[in-house]
Computed example of a mutant assay.
Amino acid sequence: MSSPGAGILAGIRVLDFSRMLSGPYCTMMLADHGAEVIKIESPEGDTSRTNGPYRSDDPERLWAGYFVSLNRSKKSVVLDLKSDEGKAAVRDLAKTSHVIVENYRPGVMERLGLGYESLAESNPALVYAAIRGFGDPRSGSSPYADWPSYDVVAQAMGGLISMTGQDRDHPMKTGPGIGDVFTGLMMSFAIVAAVRHAEKTGLGQFVDIGMYDAMLSLCERMVYQYDMEGTVAEASGNGHPLLAPFGLFPASDGWISIGVVDDAFWRELARIMERPDLATDQRLASKAGRRRHSAEVNDAVAGWTRRFSKVELAEMLGGKLPFGPVNDARDVFADPHVAARGLIASIPHPVAGHAPWRVAGNPVHFNRTPAITPTTPPKLGEDNTRILAAVKSPAA
């Protein structure tokens, strides 16, 4: 059983070969809940170490926000995977690890002699997790298998961009790197499931996910719409193709969101708007009717919301129906919900006297095994001596 404060994944060792966002986000989820995550980095380090942004108290640019956010509570070991010594160290570490995570293109680790099948010979319980742009040939060979891929490519090919933006002539990607983040999140689930299976059977396995595949899963509505109606889901601006009113509406000082998903909420909104005619109009009484007359419905609601500020609308709508203001970073930092839920985490700075970094906290809560208190992200190669010495002298 995990000790208090150790996290629900305490005792799980993860070798993390991943870089940038998708893999590091995946292993961040594991580290936040107690897994021992050891970043295996090249002598140059994870590319995100040099991506910025940097604080003004970091003139040497050692601590990029991109890196700090994703790599808290991890360890760093520098190895040259092209050298015999580096490969031997990986093999030794893999013998005592539960999970390996990497996001190289297919075949890279195999060419180094460090693929799943090779490492599993000495550790049959090993879970080997591979994040690829288009999946791994082991689970289905893609014609794009060798294409490099980043977030914007996954968003584009997986359908997300075609559904985002004002209309089909103005496609738009989402702001956050959802192609990476969602893929990494799905892989963290897959890893936990595979580790559970390994604990029960003693057998690990190869687990892979393609970023394209994850985006298609995220865009599940486009699949059933095309299958059931023969319609191609397209960008619908700030509205929704199936529901009304549902989306963003103007306030006098910004924007708010409203999501009317059933008839009772529609009647309540009409009451608050002091528009009994909307509540009694039989054309608009059902979801199907409001969908047919969505332009009329959305115009009526927008005409009303733009008369009030976000605070005034919150007083009228908050708790009555699905409603929320459109927040930016300043709003989020000031929101009492964020404080109450611990959604901004403080990461200790390694230099005494320097303020801690603030990053997005882990949103998953366990009442018996909460997320661990995050620790400072590692300096490049910080843990080489201790971890590699322990491998060479396991009894020490």
Rank of each mutant, 00 (worst) to 15 (best):
A193R: 08
A193S: 14
A194N: 04
A194I: 01
V195L: 05
V195I: 05
V195P: 00
R196N: 07
H197Y: 13
H197T: 13
E199K: 10
E199L: 09
E199C: 01
K200Q: 15
K200T: 12
T201W: 08
G202Y: 05
L203T: 09
L203K: 10
L203D: 10
F206N: 03
F206A: 05
V207N: 01
I209K: 00
G210N: 02
M211G: 05
M211T: 05
M211L: 04
M211F: 03
Y212L: 12
Y212D: 05
D213V: 02
D213A: 07
M215Q: 13
L216A: 14
C219Q: 07
R221P: 00
R221V: 08
R221Q: 09
V223I: 13
Y224V: 14
Y224K: 08
Q225A: 04
Y226I: 01
D227T: 14
D227L: 15
D227C: 12
M228T: 14
M228P: 06
E229F: 09
E229A: 06
E229R: 06
G230Q: 10
G230S: 11
G230H: 04
T231W: 03
V232G: 03
V232I: 05
A233R: 11
A233I: 01
S236V: 07
P241D: 11
P241M: 10
P241T: 08
L242A: 11
L242Q: 12
L242K: 06
A244D: 10
A244I: 04
P245A: 09
F246H: 13
G247F: 04
F249S: 01
P250E: 03
P250C: 09
S252C: 10
S252H: 09
D253S: 03
D253H: 02
D253C: 02
G254E: 14
G254Y: 08
I256E: 00
I256F: 01
S257K: 02
S257P: 04
S257F: 04
G259N: 12
G259T: 08
V260C: 15
D262F: 06
D262G: 09
D262Y: 06
D263E: 15
A264R: 13
F265H: 12
F265V: 03
L269M: 11
L269D: 02
A270D: 13
A270T: 09
R271K: 13
R271E: 12
I272Q: 05
M273N: 05
M273A: 12
E274A: 11
E274L: 04
R275F: 14
R275K: 15
R275A: 15
P276L: 13
P276M: 13
A279E: 05
Q282K: 15
Q282M: 14
L284H: 06
A285Y: 02
S286Y: 01
S286V: 03
K287H: 07
K287R: 12
A288Q: 15
G289T: 08
R290V: 02
R292T: 07
R292N: 11
R292W: 03
S294G: 05
S294Q: 10
V297Q: 00
N298K: 03
A300C: 13
A300I: 06
A302V: 03
G303V: 06
G303R: 06
T305G: 07
